[in-house]
Structures are given as structure tokens and as C-alpha cells.
Nucleic acid binder design. Structure first.
Length: 481
RNA sequence: CGGGGUGUAGCGCAGCUUGGUUAGCGCGCCUGCCUUGGGAGCAGGAGGUCGCGAGUUCAAAUCUCGCCACUCCGACCA
């Protein structure tokens, strides 16, 4: 361990200060920088490409489930926002307002959107007439603004990038089905592409989205034992359709209100990727989303000019199976490059030196395990391709094992409090469903109900960990970001 | 928004207590030589509104006040 520290300077060890480690990694891996506006970050190319790959993975799944992209305006007139009472109350404290433009005071002030249910509700009101107009399955890629008190790069920034799906349906059953379908799309994306295991479940009343009937979430567990909500899917019932008067004439001749849903995932998942997979050497990226998957480092020796040529050819040969870069910079030593690319989380490093060429082999180093392999240059592309898949799979398995090992059961409040205080992680426990018990637990342990897992407990929910009455649910407690 | 910490070169810091004339150090950066299998070496060089604004003083990085930003801890949240 002491040796690791020598190689990777300027990254605080996780065990010493996880928050500082997180910020160090973002800086050293060149993902983002602070912007001149409070709480805002600049996505640097590697950070932005991570987001682009998340976008691609999600967008493909949205299209496959019948959704299309559209774009709604950044500004929301106050009058629209005021229509849904719970919704406004939820978001009001964090809204930025435009009150003046073109040198004049506006007749109606405009909120910079914190989310788009209201504008979209207004538009759906105009677009829906008949049951034949339904369902409307629209997604928007956008930036939104929430003036949060406390910000943290990727996890909670004043302005953030996300996607928000907004759908309108003819029946309640269809809308509910959509909510669960999209929750599962999120689960599939984050587990498959980002190698992050999550627990899908329903939010408690106190934690649900402002204006929703029900909110579902996927919850991940970071390496410091804190939970992170990585995506949400809301069943909005007819709340917004009543407020925005979204009605249609059904085939039975009756006018009916539509049932709506909304669901979102943000650039927060980049933060999750960092905190689930990263280590004391820096970032560890899942191959599927890594901007660069393989770096080829030639070991240049004096009088061995063919090494560079061969390394170039080998890098070119790998381009068919991976995103590859040849690091032929003469000004850095191989050791320096090793550390640099490890900090940036590149999944595989291929070393090509004179000794390797003699033996017709290459040295491959895995970023996730640190393992070094001596492999033949014959069929190198297949080897690399297989390794990338293996890494993707094993990163998920390791994260899953970590989550399983950090998930504990509590029968009593004392157990719950003890686990939260001393071990962190997830705690499964019974809950009577009373908001008062939930609030007391939060106050005393700082742990919240992350969600009520969809997967039911094997032996029934038991007793409420707080009041001891019969439990309605088994829920997942954790301290969270 | 409440409480603590920090702000001096791209990054990390010293100097501030006890004001003083040319503001230092390490890394990084530039040029050259030499090197390259886990952050090499030598030589030369560039780079500063000391976060911003007032004030005290003959004199402010240093003292006082205000503001801003970042960060940690709380309440709010993707």
C-alpha cells in the first residue's frame, strides 16, 4: 500500500478521506473543472465523453421501448409552474427566476426549469384529443437547474444534464406498466453498461417526487458505504392531467383524463461510476463506457527503433475491436505513462518492448485487478476483446459482492443504529409504514429509507425496527448522498 | 441557510503570530543534452492584480471590516 502511494501522488487514499479522494480523482483524471458560477462544473472531454456513452446506452434502450426524443423550452412561465401545488412547493426553494430581459422587466417572470412536467403538461393538453393520440412516449435530453444549498461535482451541481421521459397513457394499468418498464431500463443500463448493481424499489411517501402518486428508484452503494439514488421513475397518476386538463375522448364516448409518468437519470451516474469502481490509484472505468479502452505503451530503447513501428502496427490492429491509443510521447518514461493511464481509468494497457517482440508477445495489464498477463501477438485482437468483456463482467460481480457484503439485516433499532454508525452500507429492516417512525430514525441515525425493494423478503417483513408493531414492508435503510 | 476550515504561479504549499523595500519552495511548464520494462538525471529559462473591495498605516500577502468562491459538518435535493 505504501508503494502505491509513491506512484500516485496527489490522490488522497480512500481510507483517509473518501470525499477528498473523490475530488482528487475527478481532477487528476481530468473529468471536470469548477466553473466561475457557484456549484457549476465544466465537463472536460473525458468527462463529457463518459456522459455521451451513457446517453448512447440509454437512448438506444429508450428507442427500443418505443420512445422518441423531443425538446421543450428552458423557461417555464410562473403561471404554469403554480398549477400543481405539491410540485411548486417541492421545487420553489431552488428555482432561479428570470425577471428581466431585453432591458425591460418581464410581465411574467420565468423560472429556469428544474424539471419539465409543467411545460410538457401544457403541451400535452394541446396535443391530446382522442384515445388514438395515446400513448405519447417522449424523452428529452436537457439541462436543468436546481439551486441546491450544497453542491458536489457530478452528484449535485446547480445546473446538471439529464434525460427526462414524459409519457401519457389511456389507462392507469398502461401508465403503471410504463413506470416499471423504465425503472427496469435504468436497472439494465446501469448494471450492464456501468457495472453498478442496484436495488430497485418504491420510495416512501416522504421521499417521493413532488407531485407524484408513487416514485420508484434504483439505489446503488458507493465504496464508502453511502447509498446513491441513481435513477427515478414516477407514476404521476392523473395529478398533472387534471391540473393541465389533458383529456381525451375514449372509444366509449367518454371524456377521460390521461395517466402520466416521468422518469429521469442524470450525470450523477458518472459520480456513481467513480465511487463504485475507483481505487487509490484513481479512476477505474467499465470498458463499455470508457472513452479509451486500450492504451499501447511502447518501451523505447536506444537503437531499437523498430519497437515504435511495431507498436504502431499493433495499436492499429486493435482498432477493429477497441478504442485504442498509442502513447508514443518521447518525453515521458513508461512508468510515468503507466501511472497516468491508471489514474485515468483506462481498462487495459498493452506494453510492447524489445523483449516482447523477440518472443512475439505483449504484456497486458488490467486496470481493475492490476494483473499482468503475457500474451501472444497472434490473435491479440481476440485476446483484448475477450479481456474487455471479462473486465466488464468482473467489475459488476465485484461491485455486487461488495453490495451484498455491505447489506445487513436489523431486527431492532439498536442494531440498525449500530450498523449505520459503525459499518454503513444498506440495512434491511421492517417498517410499519408510519412516517413518524421513518422521521425519528432519520433524525437519530441520519439514515433514510432508500426504498421499499421490489423483491419481497423471504420470511415476511417482521416487526417495525422502530416501534415494534407489525411491519408493512421490509425496507432498505442507508445514509445517502 | 447555520457552524468550522481554506483562498499566495497550472497543482500542492511556506511566509501572516511580531506590517518593512527583490514574495519563496516542490511538482508541473519551456529550451537543450541524456534517458525510457512502474512517475529518471543535468543545465538554462518562463510564469504572481498574494480571492475581490474598502479601511488603518510612511509602508499591507501580513492588521480590521465587508463580500465572493471552494471545502467539511448539518437542514433541502437527481
Amino acid at each position: 500500500m505504501a508503494k502505491d502511494k509513491e506512484f500516485v501522488k496527489e490522490i488522497t487514499p480512500q481510507s483517509q478521506d473518501f470525499s477528498q479522494w473523490y475530488l482528487d480523482v475527478i481532477r487528476k483524471a481530468d473529468l471536470a473543472d469548477y466553473a466561475p458560477v457557484r456549484g457549476c462544473i465544466v465537463f472536460k472531454p473525458d468527462g463529457y465523453e463518459l456522459w455521451e456513452r451513457c446517453q448512447a446506452g440509454l437512448d438506444r434502450r429508450f428507442k427500443a421501448t418505443g420512445h422518441r426524443n423531443a425538446y421543450f423550452p428552458l423557461f417555464i412561465p410562473e403561471s404554469l409552474l403554480l398549477k400543481e401545488v405539491e410540485h411548486v412547493e417541492g421545487f420553489n426553494p431552488e428555482l432561479p427566476w428570470v425577471t428581466e430581459a431585453g432591458g425591460e422587466k418581464l410581465t411574467e417572470r420565468l423560472a429556469v426549469r428544474p424539471t419539465s412536467e409543467t411545460v410538457i403538461g401544457e403541451m400535452y393538453h394541446r396535443w391530446v384529443q382522442s384515445y388514438r393520440d395515446l400513448p405519447i412516449l417522449i424523452n428529452q435530453w436537457a439541462n436543468v437547474v436546481r439551486w441546491e444549498k450544497r453542491t458536489l461535482p457530478f452528484l449535485r451541481t446547480t445546473e446538471f444534464l439529464w434525460q427526462e421521459g414524459h409519457t401519457a397513457h389511456r389507462t392507469e394499468a398502461e401508465a403503471r406498466e410504463e413506470v416499471m418498464r423504465m425503472l427496469d431500463v435504468y436497472r439494465d443500463f446501469i448494471e450492464t453498461d456501468l457495472a453498478i448493481p442496484v436495488i430497485p424499489g418504491r420510495k416512501s411517501e416522504s421521499e417521493k417526487f413532488a407531485g407524484a402518486v408513487e416514485t420508484y428508484s434504483i439505489e446503488g452503494l458507493m465504496k464508502d458505504g453511502k447509498a446513491l439514488q441513481a435513477g427515478t421513475s414516477h407514476f404521476l397518476g392523473q395529478n398533472f392531467s387534471h391540473v393541465f386538463d389533458i383529456q381525451f375522448l375514449d372509444d366509449d364516448g367518454q371524456r377521460k383524463y390521461v395517466w402520466t409518468t416521468s422518469w429521469g437519470m442524470s450525470t450523477r451516474v458518472i459520480g456513481a461510476t467513480i465511487m463504485v469502481h475507483g481505487d487509490d490509484r484513481g479512476l477505474v472505468l467499465p470498458p463499455r463506457v470508457a472513452p479509451l479502452q486500450v492504451v499501447v505503451v511502447p518501451i523505447l530503447k536506444k537503437g531499437q527503433d523498430d519497437v515504435l513501428t511495431r507498436a504502431q502496427a499493433i495499436a492499429d490492429g486493435l482498432r477493429g475491436v477497441a478504442r485504442v491509443r498509442l502513447d508514443d510521447r518521447a518525453e515521458y518514461s513508461p512508468g510515468w505513462k503507466f501511472n497516468d493511464w491508471e489514474m485515468r481509468g483506462v481498462p487495459l494497457r498493452v506494453e510492447i518492448g524489445p523483449k516482447d517482440l523477440e518472443k512475439n508477445q505483449a504484456v497486458i495489464a488490467r486496470r481493475d485487478t492490476g494483473e499482468k498477463l503475457f500474451v501472444s501477438l497472434e490473435g491479440l485482437d481476440a485476446t483484448v476483446s475477450n479481456l474487455l468483456e471479462t473486465i466488464q463482467k468482473e467489475m459488476y460481480e465485484r461491485a455486487k459482492a461488495f453490495m451484498a457484503g455491505s447489506t445487513r439485516q436489523a431486527e431492532t433499532f439498536e442494531q440498525l443504529a449500530d450498523i449505520i454508525e459503525n459499518q454503513r452500507g444498506f440495512v434491511r429492516a421492517g417498517w410499519c409504514g408510519d412516517a413518524a417512525c421513518e422521521a425519528e430514525i432519520k433524525e437519530q441515525t441520519k439514515a433514510t429509507i432508500r426504498n421499499i425493494p421490489l423483491e419481497l423478503p423471504k420470511q415476511g417483513p417482521g416487526r417495525c425496527v422502530k416501534c415494534g408493531h407489525e411491519a408493512k414492508h421490509e425496507v432498505l435503510f442507508a445514509r445517502a448522498y
